[in-house]
Simulated assay, not measured.
Amino acid sequence: MGSPEQKKTSGVGKGVSFVSERLFYVLGIVLFLLAWQTASWMKVFGENFSDAFSPLAALLALIEMGKNGDIVHHALPSLRRVLISLSLAVVVALPVGVLVGYFKRLEQLTYVPFQFMRMISPLAWMPIAIIIFGVGDLSVTFLLWLVAIWPLILNTVHGAGRVSPLWLNMAKTMGAKDRGILTKIIIPAAIPDMLTGLRLAVGVSWIILVPAEMLGVPDGLGYFILDTRDRFRYDELMATIFIIGLIGYLLDSANRWLISRFAWKI
Rank of each mutant, 00 (worst) to 15 (best):
M1L: 14
M1W: 09
G2H: 10
E5Q: 12
E5W: 12
K8A: 11
K8F: 09
G11W: 11
V12M: 02
F18H: 12
R22Y: 09
Y25M: 10
Y25W: 06
Y25F: 06
G28N: 07
V30D: 02
L33V: 15
L34R: 04
Q37N: 14
K43G: 11
V44K: 10
F45S: 08
G46I: 02
E47A: 08
N48G: 07
F49A: 14
A52K: 12
P55W: 01
L60D: 10
I63N: 04
E64Q: 11
E64R: 08
L76I: 15
S78W: 00
S85R: 03
S87C: 09
V91M: 11
A93M: 07
L94A: 14
V98A: 05
L99S: 03
V100Y: 00
G101F: 02
Y102P: 00
L106R: 00
E107F: 05
T110E: 01
T110Y: 00
V112T: 09
P113D: 05
F114A: 07
M119A: 13
I120F: 13
I120T: 06
P127L: 07
I128F: 15
I128Q: 02
F133W: 08
G134T: 03
V135R: 12
D137R: 08
F142A: 15
W150S: 01
L152D: 12
L154H: 15
V157D: 02
G161N: 12
V163N: 01
V163Q: 07
L168H: 02
N169F: 00
G175D: 13
I181A: 01
T183Q: 04
T183N: 00
K184P: 00
I185C: 01
I187A: 04
P188Q: 03
A189Y: 09
P192Q: 11
M194T: 09
L195M: 02
T196Q: 06
T196M: 14
G197D: 09
G197Y: 04
R199F: 04
L200W: 04
A201M: 07
G203Q: 14
I207N: 11
A212G: 04
E213T: 01
E213R: 10
E213P: 12
D219Q: 06
Y223P: 01
R231G: 00
R233H: 14
E236L: 04
A239E: 02
I241C: 04
F242N: 03
I244Y: 13
G245R: 07
G245N: 03
L246P: 06
L246G: 07
I247V: 15
G248W: 01
G248R: 02
G248I: 00
L251K: 00
S253E: 05
R256H: 13
R256I: 11
W257Y: 15
S260L: 13
S260G: 13
